[in-house]
Design a protein around this nucleic acid. Structure first.
Lengths: 124, 124, 124, 124
DNA sequence: GTGGTCTAGACCACA
DNA sequence: GTGGTCTAGACCACA
């Protein structure tokens, strides 16, 4: 249903959050589509309903989904998810760049890594 | 003495660990040099000795320092620790770069972030 | 629950660590199985939770178990840990054999020790 | 003067003890020969006199050296040192064998290691 | 004095 | 309830 890894160390609600964001951004969840209910997700993934509820709360706060009382939760505009995903990617990237530079990795090596990845992705 | 920020959310022992690693990498602590004792660090930083002990334990485990009960703790050879640190930073950086590109962040934006960081670090 | 001997001189957390490693290696603890909680182990063995926590921390660091805050600790895949353990045992054994031979101990005496141990273990 | 490794983790007095035992057993220190005084050893090795004193105390207790009040310490019979060395090697070997077997290493593998070492030493 | 271990007990995020 | 962090304070071997 959603991709979570119990061994990853990341809180499960955080993994659920990201999984939904990524699915909306990638088109796996269409805008307007009904989200599975908290209980269904919890049941199918063998996870505590409180945990799913927490993920949904943050998703709504960030405008990735919206809830209609009595009807359930629905997927919001795709653009919001994409924006959020980029924000998160950028924050993480900044952290990695700082660590890389603090460890003495040269700027050229970093740009080299980037170019290698661009090439490999361009060839896919 | 060492840089820690109680509000950062990161555990204190983890901040101490990183602070020492960075100082060794930057040459602020020379190989063979005596580290300030667990009790001294605890006293000067207003932190419990157990917390400092925990940081020192991880530092020894990772070969950054070595301890001699009864004598004190000493900075280990620089090369091993630094090399390991760079490896880890590079692996993390690759992951972030892939995520950034998958989220649609442009290569130019990424290089831009790198340049911003280089400037801010160069000006320090 | 786990085998510890307060008189042995070895730290309690180290004995707990070894006991768990041996049980996983011997199949007494199956991969994926839930470990008894830190508090339960502490209570049943008459030991402080911090001490058990320390053992669990090292077990997780070495990939013998993995922890999920809020859920519990679980036995990890068997293969990785065991393989590592064997490697370390073999390296240590080689060192001991060299020392034994250098000190003039005969090969037959060494094999005799091995057979004695095999007998005593086979009879358990 | 004597072989000690500050990073080894073994107490220094224990390393001094072993170093003397090995030197007597190997003939580097002759029976009847005067041992360097505690102060000289401490001075030359940059070690606390208390530490050297402790090593000498155990060496005398185990009959490796003997002291003549007012004259100093002297190397005892070679046979005592050799016997002690073998004892220690055997104790260490037993520990390694137990660990090796607990980690699941087969008895044949262990004997194989022994034979490999015997061959390589026979060819030296 | 120095590192290392341990107890007792508190508080936190997460489930 | 569960793991994780932290304080306060004791005790030990070693130097």
């Amino acid at each position: 249903m959603f991709a979570i890894d119990l061994k990853s160390g990341l809180p499960i609600y955080e993994q659920l959050y990201r999984s939904v964001v990524n699915m909306v951004a990638a088109g796996g969840l269409e805008p307007g589509q009904a989200m599975p209910s908290v209980r269904v997700v919890a049941g199918q993934m063998g996870v505590n309903p409180n945990t799913v509820q927490k993920a949904y709360m943050f998703l709504e706060r960030d405008g990735i989904i919206y809830s209609q009382p009595g009807k359930g939760s629905f997927v919001a505009e795709k653009s919001g998810a994409i924006k959020k995903q980029r924000e998160q990617a950028l924050i993480k990237l900044r952290g990695s760049l700082i660590e890389a530079m603090e460890s003495g990795l040269d700027g050229e090596i970093i740009v080299g890594e980037l170019k290698k990845l661009q090439l490999s992705r361009g060839e896919n």
